[in-house]
């Protein structure tokens, strides 16, 4: 299996930002996001201010900016949508670089792009400076419902296992000459996804058996350190 150390989004370090308690960072992220979303999109200088603040945090955390930049590809679908907006939106038209575009569309695209990018940078910074395990502890400290924290914990634990299973299934498919080249190949992928779902479900049952075998009765016991009491 040989998963690398740490999570793919986590950048190991010991900066002040890394050392900050997870629940403080979570609250900061939530606060920033609410502020950004609530800011009217015409207040252009404020957005520059937000970006500057984020860049300062990243500089303090000593996470290389390219590390964050590379992971921002997740935003691409939103960027595509934002770029299309000026062309498909209605309203008064204006000329930009010889193209006729919608003015409200331009504004909407700017809003989406600016707010989205700030959100992605902020979330990536949180992920880069916080171990997933600490995030869970942070959520618990913020009195997040215990069941949800448990579910997220299991998800984190088994993400690698399921991803590895998915990789093995893909290799097995390709070893028999399958390549998903066009839409007609999608049913095969759908069946693979179904098989993966059933396997994961069965693993869930086996994990539950193993838990019951060690005396689990429905509530997570307090094991002392990473979970439970603050």
């Amino acid at each position: 299996m040989g998963a690398g150390h740490g999570h793919k989004l986590h950048y190991h370090g010991h900066s002040p930002i890394h050392r900050l308690p997870a629940h403080v960072k979570l609250l900061a992220l939530l606060g920033l996001m609410l502020t950004v979303v609530a800011t009217p999109r015409e207040w252009y200088p404020l957005f520059a201010g937000y970006l500057a603040a984020l860049l300062v945090v990243i500089a303090l955390s000593r996470v290389p900016p390219t590390y964050i930049a590379k992971r921002m590809v997740i935003e691409v679908p939103f960027v595509v949508f934002a770029v299309l907006m000026p062309f498909i939106a209605t309203g008064p038209r204006t000329e930009v670089l010889g193209l006729t575009v919608s003015e409200p569309g331009m504004l909407a695209a700017w809003g989406l792009l600016a707010k989205g990018t700030l959100g992605v940078i902020a979330s990536l910074t949180l992920a880069a400076t916080t171990e997933p395990r600490d995030l869970l502890t942070g959520l618990e400290k913020l009195r997040f419902p215990n069941q949800l924290v448990q579910i997220m914990g299991f998800m984190m634990r088994y993400l690698d296992v399921v991803a590895e299973e998915m990789r093995r299934m893909r290799i097995a498919r390709e070893s028999r000459g399958f390549q998903a080249r066009n839409v007609r190949h999608w049913p095969v992928l759908a069946r693979s996804a179904g098989a993966l779902f059933i396997r994961s479900y069965e693993r869930g049952e086996r994990v539950h058996l193993a838990m019951m075998s060690r005396g689990y009765t429905g509530t997570m016991p307090d094991t002392g350190r990473t979970k439970g009491h603050p």
Partner: peptide, 14 residues
Amino acid sequence: DQLFMPSVRDDVAF
């Protein structure tokens, strides 16, 4: 199937 906690310590303590 048997190890489902975030750390070895938690798993053995379960």
